[in-house]
Nucleic acid binder design. Structure first.
Lengths: 328, 328
DNA sequence: TTGAAAGCGCTAACAG
DNA sequence: CTGTTAGCGCTTTCAA
């Protein structure tokens, strides 16, 4: 038989269905003898409880649905690591979907998840409209990673990107750099966010008593050599993690010999290329979101709206060093 | 009411439950008037069918479970693209899991999927034992991507890696290269597979009337300069996609000026770093697997065991060019 | 402790 | 075309 049912197990163990149900859920009030007989029968039959039947009857599914913004972006793999670890600790089953970054597909993905009647949902980097997130939150508890919205029912876990820029500057300054340029490495998308980061950069430089120097993407290479040239670069909007590095190489510079480089964010190629980055730790974002969600589910509380902001981390790799002449 | 049921819709529309059920499933044999009344009521109530109840009653869930070997490896994102596209064309809902590459977690993930009683399952790059795959296949139709096993019930879609090596060599030769070295760029893991690739390389070279030259990973840089030096390199086991490139740079070579480079496989950094690669196209692998699976589900056939081998593709990027002196 | 009975929300014949 | 009648596999009272 392909899928034995509770009843098959009961028959084989010579007990009632209800007893088997109790045993399967680990109820303490079953005699040791019978319990083992049931377990044995279940094992022999290869019995696996049917989640859907259980969910229907119990009113809860034990499922947490997770939307991952875009599988092509490695940051979601890291977020998932955090989510999964937190979920494993609380023995809930995680089911994943993704819309591949396209809002329309993402909406469909979220609705499919909702159709399963999950106990809760985590949306990591959702691109759908805030109203749709809100609507989803009417169906089950929802936690969002990496996006903040005006809502008192959705838990929100976000990284502090401005703080990441600050830390990056601070780290470069601590290494001894005084001329730290800000390079806009990427194409035009995400302008508004980029502007905020630029402001954070300026503020951090000024706080350190240094002169900010922003190089917009369009501008030609600029003076990279000579006495006034920057000894360190903070790259914004480098979506690959290697674009800024390549640009520096192209300008004939050695990294970190001539200039140190820190890229903001968690771009795909950064780790492989050994590029130092400054960004909120994605694993932690995921873990916190899942934690908040499960807390809320366990509490049975309707009201969410918790906001958690995670401080950034500088991941020092091979592109940062003290400025030339400082050492040896 | 948080989750209206079929019955609520029926009440509001003033019809029977069965009629609503028919409408929801798009049956053609419902009067236009009633159909619209039902649809209207459903919309007003925000009704969404409960997948679990539907699955329980219908005996099929409309769910295809997908195991993705490791979210950190971008090839799985590409495989997923193919899977998702094929699934969308046939309107099935795809639910994802992953074991993060660890067999124990992967097994748990597969079992969780199985507990949902999916109509079928795709295992992309599974690390679990063949016997466990076989066992899963007893529960529902299964297709496997990227792993071949002795089984007459599991559909298998694999890429032809030896052919990828052949194509790479052929491409290099077509560009005019005569001294094509094979570089083992990675650490020791995956030796047996690597050996097969090396054999394929030798065979391809000999078929082209050229002398193979393998440089094992341990060997020091070797003669990269001078009259007999290779003008092209085929890199095996480069797990980042940039390791071989970095090694060539380190040896003081310009790419593709001094040497052309093709990396075997779909390593993470290759696209970002502009490295030319030769490998089976992962999207297609995914699409074929999903297609085979859905065909089998539709046919209601138990017997699978189809084997599909996908020919490789050379993705020409910035590291390949004719040998120096050939042009201009 | 154990068993019987009543659904969870939906589909699938089957009669009207 | 439409409504009625059984379940799907499981949990959950409620008695025994």
């Amino acid at each position: 038989m392909s899928h034995p049912t509770l009843e098959d197990v009961a028959a084989r163990a010579g007990v009632s269905r209800a007893l088997v149900s109790l045993v399967m859920r680990g109820s303490p009030k079953v005699g040791k003898e019978r319990r083992e007989a049931v377990l044995k029968a279940a094992r022999e039959l290869g019995y696996r409880p049917n989640v859907m039947a259980r969910g229907l009857a119990a009113g809860r599914t034990g499922i947490v649905g997770v939307l991952l913004g875009d599988l092509h972006e490695p940051v979601y793999a890291a977020i998932h690591d955090g989510l999964a670890a937190a979920a494993a600790r609380r023995s809930v089953r995680v089911l994943l979907t993704t819309g591949g970054g396209r809002p329309a597909r993402e909406r469909a993905a979220v609705e499919q998840l909702l159709d399963l009647r999950p106990d809760g949902m985590v949306l990591a980097g959702p691109r759908i409209a805030a109203a749709e997130i809100e609507r989803a939150a009417a169906g089950c508890p929802v936690a969002v990673v990496g996006r903040s919205l005006r809502s008192d029912r959705v838990d929100q876990v976000t990284g502090d990107d401005a703080a990441a820029v600050e830390r990056a500057v601070a780290r470069l300054v601590a290494l001894g750099h005084r001329r730290v340029a800000c390079l806009d490495a990427g194409p035009g998308s995400g302008r508004p966010a980029r502007d905020a980061l630029e402001r954070a950069y300026r503020a951090a430089m000024e706080a350190a008593g240094l002169a900010p120097a922003v190089r917009p993407p369009g501008e030609p290479a600029g003076p990279w050599h000579g006495p006034g040239a920057p000894t360190a670069v903070l790259a914004l909007g480098d979506s690959t993690g290697t674009a800024a590095l390549a640009a520096l190489y192209r300008a004939g510079l050695s990294v970190p010999g001539d200039v140190s480089l820190i890229v903001h964010g968690d771009p795909p190629g950064a780790a492989a290329a050994g590029v130092t980055t400054a960004a909120p730790p994605p694993r932690e974002l995921g873990g916190l979101a899942m934690g908040a969600l499960l807390d809320r589910i366990d509490a049975g509380t309707t009201a969410g709206g918790r906001r958690i902001t995670v401080p950034p981390v500088v991941t020092e790799r091979a592109t940062t060093a003290p400025p030339r002449g400082t050492r040896g």
